[in-house]
């Protein structure tokens, strides 16, 4: 059955609240009939009126409240209406939720999930379009997971709610409407798929049956779908074989699948929708260089947003955020002009 990412996440929340009365929703404008700005929580307040708390416009305050709830055995799931507003809750995440378990010598746990819709391409302008997760990568004690349309987004959210660590769950706004592409018996359409073990499996997609390839593209969240599109186009139009590695847990990052893929391709492109400096791409490139420098046959490339705020005008926004064109160009750049084996005609 086809489903959208939105539907998959919404159904997961419904079933979790049904199964576990410790699960609470906390955030702005969550009540039906509105059901949350992007409708991920639609229907929940009708079904579970006592456990869906619509809040004042107080991101720091309600992330703190949810942290307190998590400390005392509940399983709060916070929605930040726009991920851009996470900055308001930064102190709560960095100096409270992320620190408590370690700082208090593991006497407590903070099983907190903060869901944050990130990303642009919807014309919302500079403060409602960003992908700010890079600022939360590498905070000791704070896990960061990003969902994508592949496999089961709802299952990923279930894992996050079951997780006993405080966790930032990054969703991409454009992705909500996308069809979920199931992974079955190691395949997703024309791609062969490998998945790592664990609650947040990294996917590696190959259009060449993992027998080798021209480049590895690492992309998460909303960029994952664009990377897959770029890989499809590069195969069809230029006979380039690209492997796409899609991590779900961005921090701490399991770099092993990337190292393995680069071992087959020798070339690396890392994508993120946010600005690039000191970002996810920098971390992946550093980690791969440290692990498998000898496998790299060319300098890795990063694909990221321009270092400017995201303009409202469609022309400005499109020019600022990376798309499939930028991914394909980066792949061509790392492959270089002359690669006889796969060159066209």
């Amino acid at each position: 059955m086809t489903s959208t990412v939105l539907r998959s996440l919404n159904q997961a929340l419904h079933s979790m609240m049904e199964e576990d009365d410790r699960v609470y929703m906390v955030g702005e404008d969550l009540l039906d009939p509105y059901g949350g700005a992007f409708k991920v929580t639609r229907g929940l307040s009708m079904a579970f009126p006592d456990r869906v708390w619509t809040t004042p416009i107080s991101e720091a305050g309600f992330v703190g409240v949810a942290t307190g709830m998590a400390l005392r055995g509940l399983r709060p799931v916070v929605e930040i209406m726009f991920g851009d507003f996470l900055t308001l809750a930064c102190d709560q995440l960095v100096n409270h939720a992320a620190k408590f378990s370690w700082m208090y010598a593991e006497k407590v746990e903070v099983p907190l999930v903060v869901r944050a819709p990130m990303g642009g391409r919807r014309g919302y302008g500079p403060t409602h379009s960003q992908s700010l997760e890079k600022h939360f990568l590498g905070v000791p004690g704070l896990a960061v997971v990003a969902v994508d349309p592949f496999g089961s987004p709802g299952d990923l959210l279930r894992q996050a709610v079951a997780d006993r660590r405080p966790l930032l769950f990054v969703e991409n706004k454009v992705m909500y409407a996308r069809r979920v592409r199931a992974v079955q018996a190691g395949r997703m359409g024309a791609f062969s798929v490998r998945e790592t073990a664990g609650p947040y499996p990294t996917l590696t997609l190959s259009l060449g049956e993992f027998l080798g390839g021209d480049a590895t593209v690492v992309a998460y969240g909303g960029m994952a779908e664009l990377a897959v599109e770029a890989a499809e186009e590069l195969l069809i139009e230029e006979e380039r074989v690209v492997e796409v590695v899609i991590p779900r847990q961005l921090h701490p990052l399991d770099v092993e699948p990337v190292v393995e893929s680069v071992g087959r391709t020798g070339r690396l492109v890392v994508c993120e929708e946010g600005s690039g400096a000191a970002g996810f791409g920098a971390e992946v490139v550093a980690a791969v260089s440290g692990r498998a420098l000898e496998a790299l046959q060319a300098a890795p490339r990063r694909v990221a947003a321009l270092p400017v705020p995201i303009g409202n005008a469609p022309t400005l926004e499109a020019a600022t955020l990376p798309g499939t064109g930028e991914i394909s160009s980066a792949v061509r750049a790392v492959i270089g002009p002359a690669r006889p084996l796969y060159s066209i005609g």
């Binding site: 703190g64 949810a66 307190g68 400390l71 709560q92």
Partner: peptide, 8 residues
Amino acid sequence: GIVPVATG
């Protein structure tokens, strides 16, 4: 920061 946590 502890005040909302305590409230929670």
